[in-house]
Simulated assay, not measured.
Amino acid sequence: MRFAEIILENRPSWFWRVLRQLGVYHVTGILPRWFSDWRMIEEEKPWDYGPLMRYKNMLEDNGLKLVIIEDNPPMDGIRLGIPRVKEEELDNVARLIENMGKLGIEIWVYNWMAGIGWSRTHTHIVGRDGMYVSGFNYGDIEKAPPHRLVKEYGVTHEKLWNNLREFLEYIVPIAEQSNVKIAMHPDDPPIPEFRGIPRIMNSIESFEKLLTLVRSDYNGITLCQGNFTLMTDDLPSVIRRFRDRIFFVHFRDVKGDRYNFVETLIGEGKTDLVGVMRAYVEIGYNGYVRVDHTPTLENDTELGAPGYNYLGRIYTIGYIKGLYEAVKREFSKGY
C-alpha cells in the first residue's frame, strides 16, 4: 500500500516538505488550470501535454512523483449524450489520457455525476471538542427546484448507463494503449437522484455492472470508503470481492446513512477500519491510497473546500500508517 496524497497548491508549499518527511513521495494531482503558457498563440488547455508536463516537473523538482490525476475536462456532454458537445469532450478526454501516458502518470480518476458533483449541505458543523465537520442531509434539498438538466435533456438512469457503456467502449482502448488505468469514483453522496438528476454509481451492484460493460485490466474502481460504507454494512467483503479492480483508495469515514451523514475524524466513524485494513492486506493490495475529507482542527487551514486541510490530513496519514503496519504484523505472525 502506497500513499498518493492529493496536492491542491499551484506552487511549492511547506506541506510538500512535510509529506516527504512523513514518507509520502507519490501524489495525486488536479488538472493544472493555472499552468497555461503565455507564449502560446492558442491557449493551452489544462489537459494538454505542456501544462501537464510543467506540473509534473514542478512536483518532481520538489521530490514528489505525480502518479494520479483526480480531475477531468468537462464531461456532461458525454454523460448526457448531447450531440456535437460529446464529440469535443470525448476528444479532450482522449487527449488527457494520451498525454498522461506520455508522461508516465498511471491512473485517471473520473465520475459519472451529471450536473452536480460531490456535494454537502452542511460545511461547518461543530463536532467533538470544536472541530469542524461537513455533512449531508437529503431533507435540505427535498424542496430544491429540479436542476436545469432535467428539463433540457430528459435524463434517465437508462440513458446514463447507455452513455457510460459508449464512453468506456471509446476510452478503454485508448487507456490500454496509453498504459493508463481509469478508476470510477462513486456518486457522492450515493443516492438514487440529486435534484431530479438520476445517479447510477451508488451501489455495489452498480460497480459490478461497471466492470462488465467493458472487460479490461484498465477498467477499475476508486474505492472511496466514505461512500462505499454507505452502500454496505460489510466493506471488508466488498474489498475482497473487487480485489484487483481496486486501483485507488480514499481512506475516510462517516456516521449515518446515505441520506443523512457527517464526516468524521478517522477512527471515529461507522466503519470497521481494522477489518478493512485486514482485507487490503489479505488481497495483497499494493496500489495507492490517500487521505480524504478530514475534519478541520483548531488553527488549521482549509484549502478551498471543507475537508481539505493540513492538520487533519497529517493526523490521518499517521493513523493509516500505524494501522497498516499493525495489521501486517498480525499476518506475519499467522493471523
Score class of each variant (00 low, 15 high):
residue 35 F to M: 14
residue 249 V to E: 04
residue 244 D to N: 03
residue 302 E to H: 05
residue 157 H to R: 12
residue 121 T to R: 11
residue 45 K to D: 02
residue 247 F to K: 11
residue 18 V to Y: 14
residue 300 D to Y: 02
residue 291 V to G: 06
residue 334 G to H: 10
residue 327 V to Q: 00
residue 213 L to S: 05
residue 123 T to M: 09
residue 66 L to C: 05
residue 94 A to L: 05
residue 264 T to S: 09
residue 180 V to L: 11
residue 96 L to G: 00
residue 150 V to R: 03
residue 296 T to N: 06
residue 316 T to M: 01
residue 6 I to Y: 02
residue 18 V to K: 13
residue 44 E to M: 07
residue 273 L to Q: 01
residue 56 K to Y: 08
residue 109 V to A: 00
residue 82 I to S: 00
residue 159 K to P: 06
residue 286 N to T: 14
residue 297 L to G: 11
residue 203 S to Q: 03
residue 95 R to I: 08
residue 270 K to I: 08
residue 140 D to V: 15
residue 254 V to S: 08
residue 157 H to L: 07
residue 320 I to F: 00
residue 4 A to H: 00
residue 95 R to S: 10
residue 275 G to D: 06
residue 179 N to Q: 06
residue 298 E to N: 14
residue 55 Y to Q: 15
residue 298 E to K: 14
residue 204 I to F: 05
residue 330 E to F: 04
residue 101 G to F: 07
residue 310 Y to H: 14
residue 106 E to G: 10
residue 135 G to W: 11
residue 288 Y to K: 07
residue 25 Y to A: 10
residue 219 N to E: 06
residue 189 P to Q: 00
residue 222 T to A: 04
residue 12 P to Q: 03
residue 10 N to R: 12
residue 48 D to F: 08
residue 236 P to A: 01
residue 177 Q to W: 10
residue 219 N to C: 10
residue 58 M to C: 08
residue 268 E to P: 10
residue 289 V to I: 15
residue 19 L to V: 09
residue 291 V to W: 03
residue 217 D to R: 15
residue 31 L to I: 09
residue 222 T to L: 11
residue 247 F to P: 12
residue 88 E to P: 06
residue 174 I to P: 12
residue 41 I to Y: 14
residue 321 K to G: 01
residue 186 P to W: 02
residue 56 K to I: 13
residue 82 I to P: 03
residue 230 L to T: 04
residue 333 K to F: 08
residue 208 E to V: 09
residue 95 R to L: 08
residue 279 A to I: 01
